[in-house]
Write a protein that binds this DNA or RNA. Structure first.
Length: 483
RNA sequence: UCCUCAAUAGCUCAGUUGGUUAGAGCAUCUGACUGUUAAUCAGAGGGUCUCAGGUUCAAGUCCUGAUUGAGGAGCCA
């Protein structure tokens, strides 16, 4: 029986002084042959275990090394030392698992994030990653809580898909055919997929949106939350080959409703973490402040992490149209001094530098941009009424966050059958293969909208971690699929 | 995929103009120390200088290529 122990979080929160308890955890440091900093992952804080002189023989003392796992029975007492309010006076100590100090990679010192990434299987045991992944959990839980409270249905859209019409980037192929060149071929030399497992070419999903729309046409409001795959050769701090995405889809919503929901959603998620991960946020806040100190003054963030999060929950997001955004850029001193690498004019797909300027320099808070040119956005986005010829726009919305860039991409969907089919033809989408999608527009079509939120980018925003590979347990990126 | 930069002890990094035996802090090991806070003090061990070529009397240092990593760009969430 192991489960009669008390978690360290519980001990530090409650009033246990004078009580006898059993704790289990891993040694973070062992000082003076007397003080163990024990951590069990329930909280960022350690419990100090005190060993009285003579309790253990020398041989056992030597086995208490960084990383070893212990079972300690003892009495909770008010701490004599200054760094903590309570500590555990050990009665018995059992070493559950030794940790060879010469080989254990984590030392009681600061490690670089790059090094910890290489030992991702061990990095959960550090303060930083402990905090990051407890927050990641809280965010995931809050996602379900938010939508459940609003009556949304959690829909599991497929991970293996035959639809290649989404156009959201390169896909990973899924097949059971041999890859050594002996796969069955058609007369023209292409692979004969009718002999493949599914009888057709299949891929890992790049988005659950199209299937999500089918659900919304019955349940009114649905959301998906699952893994998503992109085979792009992207080497950046904000892209992964395997990531998690949340895609709500709502019937009887227009673009305005969509924006309201997305804003409320993001603010809810942040508030949940502020309330439930106070210590983890405080740790990350201090860590970030320390890092900021290393930077030259003009590159430093104005707000600390917690201040930034509170600012986002307490203030409305800025809402502007694409046309207004372009005008702001054209009027900016930055543009007039020719500091943009890429030119600005109506119709361009805004570059990172443009989005960063709007969010980080001009507004200094999350910005929702709507009404993008139809030509640069996906086929399913609703064409706006009364557009000037040659300046057609769609009811798209992107939410841009400081430091992260695009955190949400969404739109009101094109519900008019004729307009949608015409759009698909323009975008070279095979109308025939997509008839299941078009059925929603044939039978009881309604105005509807939805968006996709990159979960890891959200975790980045909340934790202040600058590299997306540090907010997912085991990052999959080009040339990297360890563990 | 493109651009820039980097790779030296377990980790973080120094290594001068190409020159003799490649250094430091932390970690580890040995010893001391029983109210420590990434404990402290004394001593010791620890190197295929990423890999493959090349230039040179001589390469950690210069050149070419590869690999890996970081930052930026594109693609996007």
């Amino acid at each position: 029986m192991f489960n009669n122990r008390t978690k360290i979080k519980t001990l530090l929160q409650g009033n246990f002084v004078g009580k006898e308890v059993t704790v289990m955890g891993w040694v973070r440091t062992f000082r003076n042959n007397q003080f163990i900093a024990l951590n069990d992952g329930s909280t960022n804080n350690n419990l100090q275990v005190v060993i009285a002189l003579g309790l253990l023989n020398d041989e056992t003392l030597k086995r208490i090394t960084t990383g070893a796992s212990l079972k300690v029975k003892g009495e909770i007492v008010a701490s004599l030392g200054k760094g903590q309010s309570i500590e555990l006076k050990a009665i018995t100590i059992e070493i559950l698992g030794d940790s060879d100090a010469e080989k254990y990679p984590l030392q009681p010192k600061k490690h670089s994030l790059e090094f910890l990434r290489e030992i991702a299987h061990m990095r959960f045991r550090t303060n930083t990653f402990g905090a990051v992944f407890r927050i990641r959990h809280s965010l995931a839980f809050a996602v379900h809580k938010f939508f459940n409270e609003k009556g949304f249905v959690y829909l599991h859209t497929p991970i293996i898909t035959a639809s290649d019409a989404e156009g959201a980037g390169e896909m990973f192929k899924v097949t059971t055919l041999p890859i050594d060149g002996t796969a069955p071929k058609n007369e023209d030399g292409t692979i004969n997929f009718t002999e493949d497992f599914f009888g057709k070419a299949t891929n890992l999903t790049v988005s659950g949106q199209l299937e999500g729309e089918l659900g919304a046409m019955a349940f009114s409001d649905i959301y998906t939350f699952g893994p998503t795959f992109r085979a792009e050769n992207s080497n950046t701090t904000r892209h992964l080959a395997e990531f998690w995405m949340i895609e709500p889809e709502m019937a009887f919503y227009d673009i305005e409703d969509n924006m309201n929901l997305a804003e409320e959603f993001i603010q809810y998620l942040i508030s949940y973490v502020i309330e439930n991960n106070k210590e983890d946020l405080e740790f990350l806040d201090a860590r970030l402040a320390e890092e900021e100190k290393q930077k030259p003054q003009n590159e430093r963030q104005e707000l600390g992490l917690i201040e930034k999060l509170k600012f986002v929950t307490d203030n409305k997001f800025e809402r502007i149209t694409y046309t207004e955004a372009i005008q702001i850029l054209l009027d900016s001193p930055h543009y007039k001094k020719k500091k943009f690498k890429y030119d600005v004019s109506w119709g361009i797909d805004m570059q990172s530098e443009h989005e960063r300027y709007l969010v980080e320099k001009h507004f200094k808070k999350p910005v929702i941009v709507t009404g993008y040119p139809a030509a640069i956005k996906a086929f399913y986005m609703r064409l706006n009424n009364n557009c000037e010829a040659g300046k057609e726009t769609v009811a798209a919305m992107d939410i841009l966050a400081p430091g992260i860039g695009e955190i949400v991409g969404g739109s009101q969907r094109e519900e008019r059958y004729d307009v949608l089919v015409k759009k698909m033809e323009q975008f070279n989408i095979p109308v025939k293969e997509m008839s299941w999608y078009l059925d929603t527009r044939r039978f009881g079509t309604v105005p509807h909208a939805g968006f996709g939120l990159g979960f890891e980018r959200m975790v980045q925003f909340v934790t202040g971690m600058t590299n997306i590979r540090d907010v997912i347990p085991f990052a999959r990126t080009p040339k990297n699929c360890e563990f």
